[in-house]
Design a protein around this nucleic acid. Sequence first.
DNA 1: GCTATTAGTCCATAATCTGTACATAATCCT
DNA 2: AGGATTATGTACAGATTATGGACTAATAGC
Lengths: 380, 380
Amino acid sequence: MASRGVRHDSMRARNLAVVLATIHRSGPHTRAALAERTGLTKTTVSSLVADLLEAGAVTESGAVRGGERGRPGVAVSLSGHRVAALGLEVNIDYLAACVVDLTRTVRLRRTVPADNRSSDPALILAGLRDLVKQTTAEAEAEGLRVIGGALAVPGTVEDGVLRSAPHLGWRDVRVADLIDLPFAVDNEANLAALGELWFGSGEADFLYVSGEIGIGAGLVVGGTVFRGTFGLAGELGHVVVVPDGPGCRCGGRGCLEVYAGQDALLGELASVPELVDRLESGDREALETCERAGHALGVALTSAVHLLDPGRIVLGGIFAPLFPWLEGPVGGALGARLAQMRGTPPAVVVSRTGADAAVLGAAGLVIQQVIAEPAGMLGL
Amino acid sequence: MASRGVRHDSMRARNLAVVLATIHRSGPHTRAALAERTGLTKTTVSSLVADLLEAGAVTESGAVRGGERGRPGVAVSLSGHRVAALGLEVNIDYLAACVVDLTRTVRLRRTVPADNRSSDPALILAGLRDLVKQTTAEAEAEGLRVIGGALAVPGTVEDGVLRSAPHLGWRDVRVADLIDLPFAVDNEANLAALGELWFGSGEADFLYVSGEIGIGAGLVVGGTVFRGTFGLAGELGHVVVVPDGPGCRCGGRGCLEVYAGQDALLGELASVPELVDRLESGDREALETCERAGHALGVALTSAVHLLDPGRIVLGGIFAPLFPWLEGPVGGALGARLAQMRGTPPAVVVSRTGADAAVLGAAGLVIQQVIAEPAGMLGL
DNA sequence: GCTATTAGTCCATAATCTGTACATAATCCT
DNA sequence: AGGATTATGTACAGATTATGGACTAATAGC
């Protein structure tokens, strides 16, 4: 809705972004190649690249021979040595942080165990602030300049305010000013989806299903997260599987979470690894639980596919280690219900990023902002 | 993905769009007000407005007094007298066309009854082409210049090709080159949603539920349609309501369409008006059918709300005349299931646009393109 | 070593927006 | 009624940025 007019400086800002995004998307380019790709002249590209070099966003990385004759070009590539972003995560039983450079290489990762269930927000935020100080200092010791951060929380977020995080017992907590740098807060499932996008398969279209205590989902279309009207989209856990099924803590009945949430899957078991052990040893009850959960997940995903039209489906969180036992029932339910409407139903695959999809996604989000708006973020 | 560099002419093109969009969004403005709104200088705005005047996109509509002293400004408003767009629709039993001017005033509307069930695409397209010629001629007689068109079809569309329209019996029909003007093709539910946006309530965020023989839905977020990865999003009719319910023609079981599609609602009755008659006279069976359909719709919409996060829900198509009998069960099912997760569940309202939501939306889509890119569409 | 070829820079030119000055047209105040 | 005040819209010089052709640089092939 901004709709501000374009002036000379925004034209240049935009062109800086175009050049940087081209390098980001398709790897190192010579200035000549950039000129061709962007439609700008060599002169303009040279001038833009000079600015980006000075800001530390790119580096010249030696001559490039294309095998043809003529003067070799100088490859300009993203610089991993100057600009970095901070990713943060608060979860039920840990705080996590990571530092990622412009090339999306993870430079630092740190996890602090903590019992955040029904703990005081102020206390946890203080702990987080310590973690920020520590990691920032370490990053700076490596010569990196941290230019922004983002935080993943297991709850719903509106305008930098955490509206509600039932598993933490938080309500309306203001976390936007955690550090005095550009800072964003977002839902864990959304950021995990972005983590999968940038640190996982590299596909630009998928639905990331985040199995935790609750079940969330982040839809990525064309490399951006779909958030819905109020930023609450993707609540896969409360999609209705059986309209008159057992009650759910959300007040509804027969939600997916009742059948495939962590509590339902574990039953009386203590942890996911324990469940995996049972499954591997062929425990009948465990197998049946998983089969049931997988079927429910398949039914809910059928509805999700019809409504959201994802490119593929990526199972993450606790669903990742259980994938071998879920794949069959999920794929079966999906295939049977979708075969006729779509040639091939979306592929169901396992997440490549481990448990830290969300922290990584948070850091990646900041990097994306730098790529999209280098002039603003780097002070050009 | 374009990522072409910005040059002087694209800067101006963008600024023309910014000025035009401001007038479109917030009504007539003086040049001075436009300058303030857009952040451009008065000089620049004057020059841009001069171009828009010449292109026939805006008109000066007399002096404006704000009550204060000082020289009165001249209001610049959208011109409804020069530029127009063509909306088209193919449906089961009719062809429709309309002409809408830049102010989104409907200037012409024409419906031709036709039996298009399993009819030859070529034949119908020929009929459509006749309709286009006729309406275009009439519009031009009124001094309007038709600068583009769009077609609504009851099926799925990819890149200007109709992939599949089961109710027409069409598959892979190329309709993009129906006229030699900028031309778009899209799904009926999507365009009906846009029709509701521009010719209905004016709200910018809602889920339009299009009850026809099948049940489709178009999600509008921030004034744009969400289309999903392949443009297939919004297939509300095949959201699962009862996982082991009766089979559906899509190959699945217990889809919404089985409970609330036109066939399910009418049963042995011939038409919707007949059903409304029965309902008004208190017919027990009709009331129960409606109650059941409404409940199923409420369950499917619960899933849709969790996944899509719409601002409100607009019931259109055959659901509009049945709204008095659906409102209760739909709202009940939604409210009971959503109350706890969201303060207030999205409001369920009836569509304000009648049966021609889709044709109007098609024409409106073209108008939107003109507003978004006047330089390209008007040859500036 | 000479030529063809491609990369990158220099500089004059062109397009567009900015900012100040100014003409214009109302209201307000005496 | 007439001057002061205030706001709108235009004119013109100045600033910013991209363009285009000329020029220098570096390499391969002959």
